[in-house]
């Protein structure tokens, strides 16, 4: 099977938030991140946008994570994208207007996947809404993007479970002074 190009974003929390990322650039390049656009914000977050050739999305993403963690030891992965997407994100991906995408989503067809987040904007898992859009609208998303979306959803699910299981116990509820009751109390 020939290699295909997979595009994905990885977000990491650096082991030392005050680390100067510019000192990590050479180790990251030499660890294999020469097919990534490395970004940072100076506050302990590191991002890597990969355009990686591989036989499948899982391999591309797994090796991308490995290469960043080799160049930046202790960097903790916290997100893989694209996973949760808004109508605007979809519009950018398929290169059409947000209004056009919303027109399709707001038809609220009974078989349309439910959002993963209700809000402004609502968010869907691309792994769910992507195939539905391809089957039900003229909008087109590349197969590689859908493969990444599925793998991203899987990894983000694992990360969320780890975070849930690492939550400390809730603090004991303190006895509170009762406020004096008014006449109706």
């Amino acid at each position: 099977m020939s290699d295909r190009t997979f595009r994905f974003d990885l977000a990491f929390a650096l082991a030392d938030p005050s680390q100067d990322v510019e000192e990590l650039l050479d180790p990251l390049f030499e660890a294999g991140c020469d097919d990534a656009l490395i970004g940072w914000n100076g506050k302990g977050s590191l991002g890597a946008t990969f355009s990686r050739e591989a036989d499948c999305a899982a391999t591309a993403i797994r090796t991308g994570i490995r290469d960043v963690q080799t160049g930046a030891p202790g960097a903790a992965l916290y997100l893989v994208d694209p996973d949760l997407v808004s109508a605007s994100d979809i519009a950018f991906m398929v290169e059409c207007s947000r209004q056009n995408v919303r027109k399709h989503l707001e038809k609220n067809a009974p078989d349309m996947p439910s959002p993963a987040h209700l809000g402004n904007p609502a968010l869907w898992h691309l792994a769910e809404i992507g195939p539905w859009l391809i089957a039900n609208t003229p909008l087109r998303i590349p197969r590689e993007t859908l493969e990444v979306a599925r793998e991203a959803m899987r990894i983000n699910l694992d990360l969320t479970r780890q975070r849930l299981e690492s939550l400390p116990p809730l603090p004991e509820q303190e006895e509170s002074w009762e406020t004096p009751r008014t006449a109706h109390g």
């Binding site: 656009l37 490395i38 100076g42 977050s45 991002g47």
Partner: peptide, 8 residues
Amino acid sequence: KFCIKSVW
């Protein structure tokens, strides 16, 4: 989050 990027 990642407003500074390195061009190789």
